[in-house]
Computed example of a mutant assay.
Amino acid sequence: MVSTDKNHSSVVMFIFLGFSDYPELQVPLFLLFFTIYAVTVVGNLGMIVIIRINPKLHTPMYFFLSHLSFVDFCYSTIVTPKLLENLVAEDRSISIKGCISQFSNGVTCVVTETVLLAVMAYDCFVAVCYPLLYTVSMSPKLCSLLVTMAYSWGIVSSIVFTYSLLILSFCETKIINNFVCEYSVILSASCSDKHFSELIRSIFANLSAFCTLIIILASYLFISITILKMHSASGRYKAFSTCASHLTAVTIFYGTILFLYCIPNSKNSWLVVKVGSIFYTVVIPMLNPLIYILFPFLVVTLSVSSTI
C-alpha cells in the first residue's frame, strides 16, 4: 500500500504548476476549457442518446461509437474539472492517493478507448471486405463481447498500473509541471526501488499499444487492398465513407500520443508538452463526436458534387 517515509513528518502531496507561469491567461483559459468541456459533455451524451433512441442507428458501428462517446465523456470528466479548479484556485495541491486515483481512472478510459478503436477498425474491415457477411459476422452477441473485452482490459490494465504504484513508498512533495497526474511523475516522487514498477509499466503499455496498432494497421491494409480492387467510383466512395470518420479519429489519437513521446525532455519543451497533453486529454474527447457527425456529411457532399 501507499506509504510515506517514517522519518518524513509531512503528508506527501503533489502540486500542479499547470499554466501558473502565465497568470494573465488564467481567466481566458478557464473560459476556453470550460466551453470545450461543455461541448464535450453535450456532444458525447447527445450522441449516446441519439444512437439509443433512433432504431436506424442500431448497427454495430454506432453501437461501438456510443461506447466510445461514453469513454470520452468519462475521461474528460476525470481530467477537466481538476484543470478548471487549478486555473482559479490558490491551492493547486493534490494528495498522493488523489493523484493515483486520477491516474488509475484515466488509464481505464485510455486503454479502453485504444481497444475500442481497434474493435471499430475490425468492424470497418468486415463492412468493406465482406459486406455480404457483415450482418452475420458482426452479430449483437459478438459486438457485446468485444465491448466487454475492451472495458475488461481497461480495468485490468488500470489495476496492474495502480498496484505497481501502491507498492511504492513516497517521501517527498513533488511539483508537477503539468495539469494532470502521469505515471512518470508519480513514480519520480517515490523513495523506494522502482524497477519492478517500471517493468510492469513497460510490459503492459507496450503490449496494449502493439496489439491494438497491429489490429488497426492490418485492418486498414486489407481495406486499402479491397478499395483499390473496386472498379466502381460509387463503391469506392461508399467504402471510404465507412472508414473516413474512424480513420480520422485514429490518426488524431495516435498521432498526438506519438507527438508527445517524441518531444525531447528539456525545459523548453514543457509548454509544448502541456499543449499536447491538453489536446490529448481535453480536446480529443470533444472532437470525436464532431468527426463522426461531420465526416459522413462531407463524404456524401463530395460524392454528390463529383457526379454532377
Rank of each mutant, 00 (worst) to 15 (best):
V185T: 12
I186N: 01
I186C: 04
L187I: 15
L187G: 09
S188C: 06
S188F: 02
A189W: 04
A189H: 03
A189N: 03
A189L: 03
S190E: 05
S190G: 05
C191V: 11
S192C: 13
S192R: 11
D193H: 13
D193Y: 13
D193L: 12
K194H: 09
K194I: 15
F196C: 04
S197P: 13
S197K: 07
L199V: 04
I200Q: 02
I200A: 03
R201G: 02
S202A: 15
S202M: 14
S202K: 13
I203S: 02
I203A: 05
I203R: 04
I203K: 02
F204I: 15
A205S: 14
N206I: 08
N206L: 10
L207T: 15
L207R: 10
S208L: 12
S208M: 12
S208I: 15
A209Y: 13
A209H: 11
F210T: 13
F210C: 13
C211K: 02
T212R: 00
T212H: 02
T212I: 02
T212W: 01
L213D: 04
L213G: 08
I214L: 14
I214S: 08
I214C: 09
I215T: 13
I215Y: 01
I216M: 07
A218N: 08
A218F: 05
S219H: 01
Y220S: 00
Y220L: 01
Y220P: 01
L221Q: 07
L221C: 11
F222I: 02
F222C: 05
F222H: 07
F222Q: 07
F222P: 01
I223K: 00
